[in-house]
Design a protein around this nucleic acid. Structure first.
Length: 360
DNA sequence: TAGGCCATCTGGTCCT
DNA sequence: AGGACCAGATGGCCTA
């Protein structure tokens, strides 16, 4: 980067900013920026000679007429230097100090806008993390994994709506984990209370339909300790994922007494309760009203705009058992826009009907 | 220590 | 002209 800066006179304002912009950053309250400044201070100081060479072409030339910063660069001998023909195209304006200052200010403002834009993007990504399965505030999914999981999640939900049947857990998790990294796959499988080892073994027995290298059977360290128990083993470290602050949707909604609920690490809304293995009904334990409200809240939040039409359920099952699992499309097989076409072809049920899938 | 992830800066491009 | 968006570059942090 430094080489690029020093070799490109057009980046001169940047270098100048780095070397002395501490007082210039007006609205910048980000603590990262000063860190960069301090780190680069010495480097840029050492290279000030190189910068000075560049400045002799731009700023130093502009210092002659710095009283008129809007004065265009005219024939100061630069274009007719020697016998060379005049340069074509728009004439470059001299970088007078005032112009340099304005350019720097524009750059500072643009940086602030860019930071804000990226922060907004990250906020939206955080919101997305909260509505996909396996939300954890302490150990967030990476951006790319969040997007991949969200895409798979949307795809899985759309298939549930389209087919009108509850999928089997293995297929569901396979769909969710499609294209995800190994740690995220472990996480999703753990969150959905599926033994990832079993799920992967089954996957490999299918001849690597989902990408033979995607989910290697080896090195899956997480044994789902809750396979036999639908509850979080409170106070224990039985599940490795729990040591990282993870809790399944089931835990979050069904286990009201679980430590995650009271843990300061676990804040905000949890992942949608899309545990499809039947344990989801645990939300109805006791009085149905609060739990139902909870579930309804989430589904109404997700599907509030759905038309009140019924699912036809006439399409091929994607989440069927092993026989129909070929309906699970790889990203490469089924383009993403095809998924949206499904919605156009098949009406979707209302969300309370979707609730019924998981509440029986 | 390498690799992954992230935040930030930056210049280019497009649009209003 | 200025803002939004994008992609490349860079360096920091963390983890295996």
């Amino acid at each position: 980067m430094l080489t690029r800066l020093f070799n490109d006179p057009s980046l001169l304002p940047s270098v100048q900013k780095y070397s002395g912009w501490v007082e210039e950053s007006d609205d910048d309250d980000d603590d990262v920026v000063p860190k960069v400044k301090d780190e680069d201070q010495e480097t840029h100081d050492d290279s000030s000679d190189l910068i000075g060479d560049s400045r002799t072409q731009s700023e130093h030339a502009g210092e002659d007429d710095d009283e008129d910063d809007d004065h265009d660069e005219e024939d100061d001998g630069e274009d007719t230097e020697g016998d060379r023909p005049k340069k074509r195209g728009p004439k470059k304006r001299k970088m007078t100090p005032a112009r340099v200052e304005r350019s720097k200010m524009r750059r500072v403002k643009a940086n602030a806008r860019e930071r804000t834009r990226m922060h907004d993007l990250n906020s939206a990504l955080d919101n997305l993390r909260k509505v996909v399965p396996c939300y954890s505030k302490t150990q967030k999914l990476s951006k790319i994994e969040t997007l991949r999981l969200a895409k798979n999640y949307i795809w899985a939900l759309s298939e549930i709506l389209r087919c009108g049947k509850r999928p089997d857990l293995v297929s569901y998790v396979q769909t969710l984990c499609k294209g995800l990294s190994q740690p995220t796959t472990n996480l999703v499988a753990g969150c959905l209370q599926l033994n990832s080892r079993n799920f992967l073994t089954e996957q490999c027995q299918e001849g690597g339909r989902y990408g033979s290298g995607s989910f290697p059977v080896h090195s899956y360290p997480y044994q789902c300790a809750r396979l036999s128990s639908p509850h979080c083993q409170t106070g224990s470290n039985a599940h490795p994922l729990r040591t990282h602050g993870y809790c399944s949707a089931y835990d979050s909604y069904g286990g009201s007494g679980s430590p995650e609920y009271n843990s300061p690490e676990y804040e905000g809304p949890a992942s949608p309760p899309l545990c499809i293995n039947g344990n989801f009904s645990l939300k109805h334990q006791g009085s149905a009203s609060p739990d139902t409200e909870r579930g309804s809240y989430h589904y109404s939040m997700h599907y509030s705009g759905m038309p009140g039409s019924r699912a036809t359920g006439t399409h091929n099952l994607v989440f069927g058992s092993s026989g129909s699992r070929s309906g699970i499309h790889s990203e490469n097989v089924l383009p993403y826009h095809d998924m949206h076409l499904h919605h156009e072809r098949a009406p979707v049920p209302v969300y309370d009907e979707l609730n019924a899938f998981f509440h029986n």
